[in-house]
């Protein structure tokens, strides 16, 4: 009864998705597409979780107008940008019972200014990745994990990646969601059920360009170029956000790096 009266649309939609998943006809299963058989020589490449051809990235990121100096002027603070060095990797070594892949992802970020900055400072996150759609040139995955920088958080990150030019150009889009309920602000108010932290929605579009076809899976002699753009929406308590020199709002970041 409680479920009926308080069941919202997202819950009903989720139940529908579950039912559709369970009752899908045999044709939809397509005898369970077997991505591992599609191109067996590229099995190991399928375990790479950045784009469709890479597993690691080292990049510099610039986020303009992302540091608000409230100590200088509380009402009209000077605004500066944030620079960061980020190292990311994603490996999916485990073929699953359903033809997908599973693995881990993680990244480390060192941002400047180092202190009292939402995008700056030292941060890292680690997540589990499930990649149910795991074709050679089309990937879709979901990551669940946690991390820290200006706050400690848990996140959910769906991802889709596809090849544009085989072996040379591939693209990736991710959306990382940090619910406010999954965030804990360090040094904030006493933690409790009502004490939510910062929320974040981050959309990221990446383009990977390789200049030479990989001879084999261990051929890293010519790293590719990793270009990406991020659109981040930050929310949370104004006072808590001010402690990390930021306001609630939308921010854009630009990144350039090398992809392995």
């Amino acid at each position: 009864m409680v479920l009926c009266t308080r069941m919202p649309r997202p819950l009903a939609a989720s139940l529908f998705v579950f039912a559709a998943l369970a009752l899908a006809p045999g044709v939809a299963r397509a005898d369970d597409w077997s991505p591992r058989d599609e191109s067996s020589s590229d099995d190991v490449l399928q375990s790479y979780g950045l784009g469709t051809n890479h597993f690691g990235s080292v990049a510099i990121v610039y986020t303009p107008r992302s540091v608000f100096d409230f100590e200088e002027n509380e009402q009209d603070p000077p605004i500066a940008g944030t620079g960061a060095l980020t190292i990311a990797a994603c490996i999916l070594p485990l073929p699953t019972l359903f033809g997908g892949m599973g693995g881990m992802e993680g990244d480390i970020t060192i941002g400047f200014p180092l202190f009292k900055s939402y995008f700056g400072g030292f941060g890292a996150n680690l997540g589990l990745v499930v990649q149910p759609i795991s074709f050679r040139h089309l990937r879709a995955s979901l990551a669940v994990g946690g991390g820290f920088n200006a706050h400690g958080y848990g996140y959910l990150k769906p991802r889709i990646a596809f090849t544009i030019v085989p072996h040379y150009i591939d693209a990736e889009a991710t959306y990382r969601w940090i619910p406010e309920t999954a965030s804990n602000v360090f040094g904030g108010r006493t933690d409790g059920l009502e004490d939510e932290g910062f929320g974040e929605h981050k959309f990221r579009a990446s383009l990977f360009v390789s200049f030479r076809q990989r001879k084999d899976r261990d051929d890293f002699s010519v790293p590719g170029v990793h270009l990406f753009f991020e659109y981040t929406r930050v929310s949370g308590d104004t006072e808590e956000l001010a402690r990390v020199s930021i306001r609630a709002g939308d921010f854009m970041s630009f990144g350039l790096g090398a992809a392995l």
Binding site: V2, R6, M7, P8, P10, L11, A13, S14, P179, A182
Partner: peptide, 10 residues
């Protein structure tokens, strides 16, 4: 565990 299960207050 969350109080906002699928966006609800359940």
């Amino acid at each position: 565990f969350t109080r906002k299960w699928f966006g609800s207050d359940l």
